[in-house]
Write a protein that binds this DNA or RNA. Structure first.
Lengths: 145, 145
DNA sequence: TGATATAGTTAGCAAGGCTAATTAAACTTC
DNA sequence: GAAGTTTAATTAGCCTTGCTAACTATATCA
């Protein structure tokens, strides 16, 4: 066992806690009937509004060909619309349909309620610490200038 | 937009913070040359010691056939050993080799140092809040009795 | 106008998830 | 102790999702 500093030890525990949290939350997503990458891409369109394929690929940190296929699947299920951008006819405009928006909201609500149910077992002081920690983590992980 | 309770709002932010944290940390894993599922399975063997394929599959929350293939790949790269359990000859005993252990430690160290580097931008009070939050999250997410 | 750049798609590969079916060993039950 | 059942692991075959390379179509620039 290599010796870890105090901060490295914290980093290690933070990492493993994040993994376990997401593993449990992910189980809830199965009931949307959507595979993870599709659900995630749909979520970006619902919350981020209409955008091009390249923008969506960048947001999801995947390459355009990967997103092109995910978009194919979402379109054929009627969850998003793909139209040609008339100002630049090379580009497409992607946007969630009513159906896609509804499905996403159901899934999101289920996942949030699942996590909230667990968080409700804590007291206010504990939840407040999580709140502070989220702020600190976001500050720590923010892109350096 | 559906209205979320205070706790649900916290759940939502916690979820998205965990996603972003892991996305950034994962980038570090590429330099091990191991795909994510393989790295994760190897990690369980290094830290959890020798175990059967079923146990490893359960630990990784995948089905045995999935783990069987991951184990094939790790074995053919010389990172783990697969031997027959002499007390139950249906079962195998999986354990990390020296080489597997070394590679895992390098990757883990890199990931932890990456996170620690970010955490070091915070002050002691902020880190202490993260520490408290980890404890609270673990308490909240623990399997109910 | 011709060259270059950009948006998106297609083709083809690898990893990793699954279920169903198979094999081999262990256990149960009479 | 032979027959049936259960269990551990594997094999086969499917789908999703990541990638690069190569292509098409449109836009931009010199």
């Amino acid at each position: 066992m290599a010796k870890l500093s105090k901060i490295e030890e914290l980093a290690d525990r933070l990492h493993s806690t994040a993994i376990h949290l997401l593993r449990q939350a992910r189980v809830q997503d199965a009931s949307t009937g959507l595979a993870p990458a599709r659900l995630s891409a749909l979520s970006v369109l619902v919350f981020g509004g209409a955008m091009s394929l390249n923008e969506l690929a960048r947001a999801e940190q995947v390459r355009p060909p990967t997103m092109s296929r995910i978009v194919d699947a979402l379109e054929s299920e009627g969850l998003i619309r793909r139209t040609v951008n008339q100002l630049d006819r090379r580009a497409v405009v992607l946007e969630a349909t009513e159906k896609g928006t509804a499905i996403l909201w159901q899934g999101r609500k289920r996942r949030i309620k699942f996590l909230a149910k667990h968080l409700s077992r804590l007291n206010d002081a504990e939840r407040s610490k999580i709140d502070d920690a989220i702020k600190a983590i976001q500050k720590a992980m923010a892109r350096q200038s």
